[in-house]
Amino acid sequence: MKIPSQYDSIRPFEPEELPEVFERLIADEHFKDVIGFVYPDVPFDIIASKMRKCKTNIEFQKAFCYGFLKNLLAQASKGCDIDVTAVNVEKRYTFVSNHRDIVLDSALLDILLIDAGFTTTCEIAIGDNLLAAPWIEDLVRINKSFIVKRSAGMREMLAASKLMSEYMHFVISDKNDNIWIAQREGRAKDSNDRTQQSILKMMAMGGNGSVVDRLMQLHVVPLSISYEFDPCDSLKAWEFQLKRDVPGWKKTKQDDLLSMRTGIMGYKGRIHYHCAPCIDGWLQTLGTDIPKTDLFGIVAGHIDDEIFRNYRLFPNNYIASDLLEGSTRYAGAGKYSEEEKAVFENYILGQIAKLPTDNRFGVSRDDAYLRECMLVMYANPAKNHLEACSRG
């Protein structure tokens, strides 16, 4: 189909553009190095030939991403599943999820949707801050990503947000595809997942009618992502310490690349994705007299509760809660064993030990603080889940 030209700077590549982009990637030495790492036993000429045979983005995803991710899960997890009983695989949705991993949140969703019977994957919202090199932008746009502009001035950001919103509405209504977008900009480092109202405000800039009409046109599905182990937990804790101890500290692109690599390759244990019902029906129950200033907060709160209620909790979540509170409440309720507690405490110590004791900031590693930060990360999903369930 013909894509309006105003979306050219942010949209994924279309099938007719793929041959030129493939050739650009095949000629890129950095891309060759990455492929050599991912497929060490496969000659690059074979990879190049396989790429050239892909006629659509979906074909590329199935030829490369699907198998890679399945192998990755076999090596770095105890399995990954999804519950889609609340949605219709024949329909198209905007999946709004908590943000656990920079790369894998949407990548794993793609293969899970295929396995669940969806005939297409998702167009993926990705921040331009993660596009550290031209070949990375090429690769993600082949992989059905659209670009979120984050490095612009205030006026430019407003125009970019409106353009992205209009594009999202176009994807759902005209391209008949799914969308994935995180509930907030950047990961919640403490796993206290909260939907930013600014995300919803952006989504409501496109479409027609009232705010509720515009949100309904995107068919939002709150999506819960639960990890037994977060490979980046110690890196996130280290970020907390640097923000505390180094005035003006900010992440670099190298920090993002380290988090991406660690999140992809690190051990995750069990992983569960869970789709809540599409919120269209709930949105229709809202009164028409709700002030716009309140409406986005109400919608964000509903999405949050749906995500919280559908977390899958693991023994680690309960152990961390008891350790923070200095109690045995969940142990007494049979949520974990003493053996599981010992394994988790040793895991925390091992993750902290991976961090350098000396660093370019001249900051000493505060192990007690890092341990507390990591316990909070694992405890917050249990806290939010139980509170949301109590609200009904």
Results as ranks from 00 to 15, higher is better:
residue 353 A to E: 14
residue 112 L to C: 11
residue 24 R to N: 13
residue 66 Y to N: 08
residue 96 V to D: 06
residue 232 C to H: 06
residue 114 I to C: 04
residue 4 P to A: 12
residue 22 F to E: 05
residue 241 Q to G: 04
residue 291 P to H: 09
residue 3 I to N: 00
residue 166 E to N: 15
residue 56 T to C: 10
residue 84 V to N: 02
residue 124 I to R: 15
residue 194 R to V: 11
residue 349 L to H: 10
residue 101 D to Y: 10
residue 268 K to E: 02
residue 105 D to T: 06
residue 375 L to V: 05
residue 237 A to D: 08
residue 168 M to W: 01
residue 257 L to R: 06
residue 95 F to C: 07
residue 134 P to T: 09
residue 118 F to C: 08
residue 68 F to K: 02
residue 118 F to Y: 15
residue 328 T to H: 11
residue 1 M to W: 11
residue 388 A to L: 07
residue 196 Q to Y: 12
residue 117 G to L: 12
residue 241 Q to S: 04
residue 352 I to T: 01
residue 233 D to A: 13
residue 122 C to R: 14
residue 356 P to N: 09
residue 62 K to N: 12
residue 286 L to G: 03
residue 174 D to A: 12
residue 255 D to Q: 02
residue 97 S to D: 05
residue 47 I to S: 09
residue 2 K to H: 13
residue 295 L to G: 07
residue 156 E to K: 09
residue 256 D to H: 05
residue 370 L to Q: 07
residue 107 A to M: 12
residue 137 E to T: 11
residue 230 D to Q: 04
residue 298 I to L: 15
residue 131 L to T: 06
residue 297 G to F: 10
residue 317 N to R: 08
residue 283 L to G: 05
residue 186 G to W: 12
residue 392 G to Q: 13
residue 187 R to G: 08
residue 134 P to Q: 11
residue 44 F to E: 03
residue 7 Y to R: 06
residue 259 S to W: 05
residue 294 D to H: 10
residue 361 F to S: 01
residue 203 M to Q: 02
residue 234 S to D: 15
residue 356 P to C: 12
residue 330 Y to D: 05
residue 249 W to K: 03
residue 269 G to P: 02
residue 319 I to C: 12
residue 114 I to Y: 15
residue 139 L to Y: 12
residue 322 D to H: 06
residue 141 R to G: 08
residue 15 P to K: 09
residue 142 I to S: 06
residue 265 M to K: 08
residue 229 F to A: 00
residue 175 K to P: 00
residue 323 L to T: 09
residue 125 A to Q: 09
residue 94 T to H: 05
residue 31 F to N: 02
residue 355 L to V: 02
residue 174 D to V: 11
residue 209 G to F: 13
residue 170 F to I: 00
residue 126 I to K: 08
residue 229 F to S: 05
residue 133 A to C: 01
